[in-house]
Amino acid sequence: MIYQFSVGRLECVVVSDGQPGPPFEPSLGDFYTPESGVPADVLRDACRGRSTLTCGYNCLFVGTPDGTAVVDTGLGASFLGYGEYIEPLVGKLGDGMTSVGLSRSNLAAVVFTHLHQDHSRGAIWSGELTFPDATAFAHSAEVAFWSGSVDLPSARPHLEVARETIRLFGEKLRPFEYGAEILPGVQAIAAPGHTPGHAAILLQSQGERLLCVGDTFYDPLQLTNPTWATPWDLDAPASVASRRHLLERAADEQILVHAYHLPFPGLGHVQRDGSTFTWHPLHDR
């Protein structure tokens, strides 16, 4: 699954690492739980009969003056972390790259919104760097967090992959700060909370913009209910504040949004609806 478009002079392509469909779509009740602040009756009323969400892995390639970069890399091949059913449904990034003429050896940069395994394992799944000549970028707080002592239960499933990503890239991993221009036309935007160094990525060229929001939201339900957190938000109040800020900016400035986990290609616009928001896909699949 590929989708090609441009942001000014930045040539872009969304390549899916996989998008599990029925009967393998995850339950909404796994994402929005009483423990994360969403009572079961509130979720039931909001869902209006829907019980699952579509969890895509939409990796974004961007052609910059300094070479081609990818924002997040999917789960990669041979992944069994969510159960055996998931293994044949993900790890499609390499095939998608080949179909649009992208070479792993020619990739210049890997930009991580954060280091959860579904965003970083695609870069290291084989035990070696998938993109051997690429420089990697992640927020300094993200690198520091996963390099230290991690005791939070929701973080533990991601710890091994995050640390292996840091180890394998080594000196080729360049920590950044919010506001930094990572590559020409590619800027890091503050979005902490989901993880300590979670970042959004803003592309800008010739007056056109695209905001990659990473895991700011998993489903349109988090636009109509922006205070909802998930079990994977390590700092729920901060994640809610980041989500509201990014949604307000995307709506008020009419910025095209790239949402990593929404149905392929994860592109759309955000509109205000009173104190909440609505999601408008760029087009139907």
Rank of each mutant, 00 (worst) to 15 (best):
G266W: 00
R163M: 13
N58S: 11
T68V: 15
S105I: 10
L211C: 11
S6I: 04
F131N: 09
R121A: 14
L89F: 02
L80C: 03
V143S: 07
G8S: 07
P263C: 03
Y32I: 00
V38I: 12
P153F: 00
G127W: 06
P157L: 03
S78L: 04
L102G: 14
H280K: 12
H261E: 07
L107D: 10
A250E: 06
I182E: 06
P34M: 07
L10I: 05
C212F: 01
S140N: 08
T64S: 09
T278N: 10
A46C: 07
P196V: 11
P132M: 03
D30R: 04
A40W: 07
C12G: 09
G74D: 04
V71P: 01
D133T: 13
L256D: 11
L53D: 00
F24I: 11
C55R: 11
P237H: 03
I124C: 10
A40S: 15
R50I: 12
I189E: 12
P20R: 02
A162R: 06
M97N: 02
Y32G: 01
G76H: 06
S103D: 15
A144F: 07
V7Y: 00
R121N: 14
A238H: 04
T98K: 14
L210R: 03
T68D: 07
S126K: 07
I2S: 14
C47F: 00
P132N: 07
Y85L: 05
F5P: 04
F79T: 13
W125Q: 12
G83K: 07
P65M: 06
M97C: 13
V143I: 13
S149Q: 11
T278P: 01
E177I: 01
C59V: 08
G148Q: 05
W279Q: 11
V38K: 00
S120L: 10
E177D: 15
V270N: 10
K172R: 15
V15F: 00
H114P: 01
F131S: 05
L43E: 12
S275P: 09
A259V: 04
L80K: 09
S239G: 10
A141G: 04
S6M: 01
L102S: 12
A236P: 15
D151I: 10
G94T: 03
H114E: 15
G91S: 05
A46S: 11
E248A: 08
L93Q: 10
G185F: 03
G207D: 05
V257A: 06
S126Q: 10
I124Y: 04
P184R: 02
Q4G: 11
R244F: 06
P22K: 05
P192R: 13
A144R: 14
L221Q: 02
A229C: 15
T224W: 01
L183Q: 02
R156K: 15
T135S: 12
F79Y: 15
A46T: 01
N106H: 12
R156L: 15
P237K: 09
A259I: 08
L107F: 03
E87H: 02
F137S: 04
F137C: 04
E142M: 01
D45Y: 01
G56V: 05
H283I: 05
F145Y: 15
D41M: 04
L75H: 01
L43G: 14
D219I: 00
L80Y: 11
V42W: 01
